[in-house]
């Protein structure tokens, strides 16, 4: 009612200045990175005119192609596996009576959000080294397994949120209308939780695509993903090629995350 009674942060002194400074710090480096990906020269700091040459160079670079394909394979498998597991976990934690130890299970599912990545990385390195020794297998399986593990909470959270918002009486109504438990799940529960599942999968995909730390520890020789390849390049001479790859990665991530938000808003 009264204008002065409600707290309006926009009226606080310095609000505009702080907001602008924050956006500047957040986005100026990214904008610079994108701009220099179009630099005609060799430098990432000295502008010499517009060109697509670094995109062409990146596209024709065999190592980058391999890394990109590997990234997509790992992210695809990991996000699918993580989403399936997260869906089961979400059903298991919301579609049952409250039971003892529920909070513990909740914490265990979200463990990757809390344990420092570097710790997980080292731990996996040691375990997988032993397994590699024992089995002789050194394929992409380790990466996929590791990515699946840390992607689970990212897939789990939106699915669980969706399930909790779902009206239980719809499932009761399905049962009332002669749907067996399995058919009620297939025809009512699953379609209604689909937006959550798709959102979870997208989030998991982006998180996997982006990972450096755990990948760095788990990958075998010659198993660079795009982020670890880029990290490797940074140790040598830096050319705008890195900017070009970064820009492409950036746009893929932004596109997927935007789709995630659109999807969540439309079906909510």
């Amino acid at each position: 009612m009264s204008e002065r009674a409600s707290f309006d942060i926009r009226r606080m002194p310095g609000f505009v200045a702080i907001a602008l400074a924050t956006f500047l710090v957040l986005y100026a480096p990214i904008v610079t990175l994108v701009i220099y990906s179009f630099n005609a020269g060799m430098s990432v700091a000295l502008w010499e005119g517009f060109s697509w040459r670094w995109y062409e160079a990146a596209m024709h670079n065999q190592q980058i192609q391999d890394a990109a394909v590997r990234s997509v394979i790992v992210a695809s498998f990991a996000s699918v596996f993580a989403t399936v597991l997260a869906t089961m976990a979400a059903l298991g934690t919301t579609r049952v009576r409250p039971f003892r130890g529920q909070t513990t299970i909740y914490a265990l599912i979200n463990q990757p959000l809390m344990v420092p990545e570097i710790v997980t990385g080292v731990a996996l390195l040691i375990v997988f080294a032993t397994v590699k020794q024992a089995t002789g297998y050194s394929g992409l399986g380790y990466l996929i397994l590791a990515h699946t593990a840390f992607c689970i909470p990212f897939a789990y959270l939106p699915i669980r949120a969706r399930l909790e918002g779902l009206d239980r009486s719809l499932e009761t109504a399905a049962a009332d209308l002669y749907a067996t438990p399995w058919r009620a799940f297939r025809r009512v529960t699953l379609p209604l939780m689909m937006p959550g599942i798709v959102a979870g999968a997208m989030l998991a995909f982006v998180i996997s695509l982006d990972d450096v730390v755990i990948t760095e520890f788990v990958k075998s020789a010659g198993q660079d993903t795009l982020p670890t390849y880029m990290l490797g390049q940074l140790r040598r001479a830096v050319t705008p090629e890195i900017n070009a790859i970064s820009t492409v990665l950036l746009f893929i991530s932004v596109a997927i995350v935007s789709a995630f938000f659109v999807l969540n808003r439309k079906k909510a």
Binding site: S169, L170, A173, A174, D176, A179, T180, R187, P191
Partner: peptide, 26 residues
């Protein structure tokens, strides 16, 4: 035995006709 729920509990992802046909389909 069928129920008309106080909250209606109509399936939001189906049309009116699909809702009505659900029981027979099952």
């Amino acid at each position: 035995v069928n129920t008309v729920f106080q909250s209606y509990a109509l399936f939001p992802h189906m049309t009116v006709a699909q809702n009505i046909g659900f029981g027979l389909e099952m």
